[in-house]
Simulated assay, not measured.
Amino acid sequence: MKIYLDNAATTRLDKEVFKEMEPYFFDGFANPSSAHGPGREARRALEKARATIAGLLGADPSEILFTSGGTEADNIAICSAIRGSGIRLAVTTPFEHHAVLNTLRSLEKNGEIELVYLMHDERGNISLKHLESILAFNSRAFVSVMHGNNEIGNLHDIAEIGTLCRKYNALFHSDTVQTMGHYEFDLRSLPVDFITGSAHKFNGPKGVGFLYSGSRTTVLPLISGGGQESGRRAGTENVAGILGLAKALEIACRDLHEDRDRILRLKKEMIAGLRKGIPGISFNGSSADLDDSLYTVLSVSLPPLPEMAAALSYLDSNQICASGGSACSAHSGHGSHVLKALAYDFERTAIRFSFGKYNTSDEIAYTVARLSDLYQNARLKDLPLAV
């Protein structure tokens, strides 16, 4: 039995989504920029997908730009806002995804911007008073604050942040990759200039995403090439992937309330079970706050075992898939920058469990039992477990 609890890294493709995509790998494979009949049919399908996504988000189809995923979308938003508007001050948090942080740091290194990080508390909650003080006493700024943190689950009030940005004429970008398909968005009323989505985070295909850019923005292409996406993103569009993206978002929005309620119950069961089974356990950020965190993410801080990797290795040997932070942090080999920003005690083992619509209560019970067994056995063997 393989238990997959790493849905913040990627999700399983929905069969309904694959069914939507399949014809465009074979019969509908034509280039949507071609003038012949099959090309026009591919173009119609692509623009229908764009209209579907825009309709689900309360946007205009012209405001939806297709990309290869969230990383590219974040890069386009950041570089377009700063270079297109001549902005010299950028404001962000130390908890952002590397797609945001590394892009901003590169612009800072090149001398294009001054980069300021928002103050935060010990749980990673940012200070909006600090944000307002920055915006009030500086020239026009660019602000990038993610909606939901992929590692510690903190949710940020992007409506309030956006309102502050509008008050001081700042451009506001929010990385919404973890919340897209899991929360409702109405861009007719939400004061954001850029948001991003990546299909594989809500049971769509990998390698396709989108950028929403509002009416106050200018989008500059990152690469030169053809005139695809109205000249904003060169390269032949991934028609099958785009149709999968639209279908996955449609399904996610259709089932949002039902999926959220069920997944939230699973998260609640895991929190209760781990607290009962492992003395000294704690939770990182706001992830254990059921009312104020991503319902899909739980970041656990475990008492030390003799080997730091023992807990994750043990879970893996028991066919349970979880992560020590974000998948991107694990790949970098440098550990979690999010936990480092929280001054995390790395003597303790951090595990991120992230839930999806295919998880079950039995899987949660099994995972809790195995992890509790690990710590109970360590105690029986008189191994030191600091709490």
Rank of each mutant, 00 (worst) to 15 (best):
S293V: 02
I251F: 04
L249Q: 07
A272I: 01
T196E: 11
I281L: 05
G225F: 06
R275S: 07
I223Y: 10
I195A: 02
G214D: 09
I281P: 07
F210H: 07
G280Q: 06
S293E: 11
R254V: 09
A159S: 15
G209N: 12
E229I: 03
L171V: 07
H156L: 09
K267S: 06
K167E: 07
I263C: 03
E250Y: 03
K268D: 15
L245D: 10
H200D: 14
R265G: 15
I242N: 08
A240R: 13
A170S: 14
D292C: 08
D255P: 02
T236V: 14
D292G: 13
F202T: 10
G204Y: 00
N150E: 00
G162H: 14
R166D: 15
V239Q: 15
L155N: 13
L164W: 06
N150I: 02
G235C: 10
Q228D: 09
E229L: 05
L243P: 05
N238V: 12
R188L: 03
E237Q: 15
I271M: 01
L190G: 00
I281E: 09
V208C: 07
T163M: 01
N150W: 00
A199N: 07
N169D: 15
E151L: 08
L220G: 02
L249K: 05
I281A: 03
H200E: 10
L187I: 11
K268S: 15
G285I: 00
K206Y: 08
D292R: 15
L243Q: 08
E229N: 07
